[in-house]
Amino acid sequence: MKRVLLMAMLALLMLSPQAWAVNPDEMLKDPALEARARVIGKDLRCLVCQNQSIDDSNAELARDLRVLVRDRILAGDSNEQVIDYVVSRYGDFVLLNPPMKKKTLLLWYGPVIILGLGVVAIFVFYRRRRHGTVDATAGAVPLSDAERAKIDKIMDGDR
């Protein structure tokens, strides 16, 4: 019974929403605007703890960036304008989704290229192996008499 209860409690825990660092006092009154701020904040990297978004991070700089995002939204900026402003200060690094640029082409297409190379390699490997079994006898040099005698001797010794 105890175990069932424990399991139920753990299951309930899984239902709890993700914990955000966004404090109630930062939030905008208009839910639509706040939703936009969340969309923007999700994609902006916290520059202190670099693998979190500003919405996830408790760092003070992240908090100030969240406030700045909301200030700009209230001032009438579009999502793109807010993001462009932050990028103009911190560079592309601040974006958790790196943009598609000449410099990042390898980053985006690298895995596809490597996958392609792998497929080609496998294809070549099997093709060669199939042809290889046919070619093996065609290109082979027949045994000389001395070699034949040596083999016979070894085989006899086995018996």
Binding site: V48, L61, D64, L68, V86, R89, Y90
Partner: peptide, 13 residues
Amino acid sequence: PRSKAAIAFGVTG
């Protein structure tokens, strides 16, 4: 106190 200038300067720390 609210990082207004710091963010404008792109300060990270």
